[in-house]
Amino acid sequence: MPDTVTATDALIKVDNLSKYYPLASGLFSRVRHYIHAVEGVSFAADAGEVIGLAGESGCGKTTTGKLLLRLIAPTNGYIYFNGIDVARIPSGGKLKAYRRQVQMIFQDPYESMNPRKTLYDIIAEPLAVHKIGNIVGREQVVADSLARVGLVPPETFMFRYPHELSGGQRQRVAIARAIGIKPRFIVADEPTSMLDVSIRTGVMKLLLELRQEYNLAMLYITHDLAVARYMCERLAIMYLGRMVELGPTEEVLQNPLHPYTKALISAVPVPDPTFKREAIPIKGSISRPVDPPSYCRFYPRCPVATDYCRENKHPPLEDKGDGHYVACYNV
């Protein structure tokens, strides 16, 4: 792993992270098959930086996000938070201490809140779990958080139930819950993909403002490259569990180097009828990374593949200049 991908003083630094899921096998079969949901992923994020994670469905975005929060245990690799490896800390006090500093925002604003709790309970939960402040103090924090995300006056929202809010309002509540304990790192898993255009912009802007205000590092997971363009400083593209490209967002989008990224970006429809985009077709379709071969994951579909790609291991993520990393032998 080239150490340059991961700045040493970064807030969160991921090194060679992998997660394999055992595939449910037949009752009498002795062979164990594994889905290599995430493999060999490395990157780092500074405080205040938003890193985008994009790719098609099933490429391992959510798995990466959950690994970072230790919602699932990694099969391999390291996660350094503030220099401390949190990949293998046992559940208990230390893990709880880590979780005081991280938060997650979920995709589905309807399912990510307990329908039997009031907004007050929902937003105060992290505070209560970590025993921060007394009840009066928590009420104040909840009121402030609600006001901060634009649900005013907070008193009229505090004791409502989630089903009494619209999708956009709920996602704001989810954000209020996430910022209440003043975390330093947030994983946002497609937080706007279920919101309508006119409401989405407000939520995106709010996230960016909060990032500034709290100097938050954020992993912004999305399948929408256009949204990623507005949200992230740097953008990583994943394909079947592997990170294939990472670089400054504008650079990756306007000047993609990896053949997969090129195909992906060329397929995004453009909201401009005069723009004639030139589609770069790739053959075949995406599969699941079950016991994948060791050579490049993209090889079977790659338009520029050579024999070399097949005979060697998956290409490493290499700097092609200005922090634009690509994992491909033929760039």
Partner: peptide
């Protein structure tokens, strides 16, 4: 105006 685009 609210709709983002990857191009342009």
């Amino acid at each position: 105006s609210a709709f983002p685009s990857v191009r342009g």
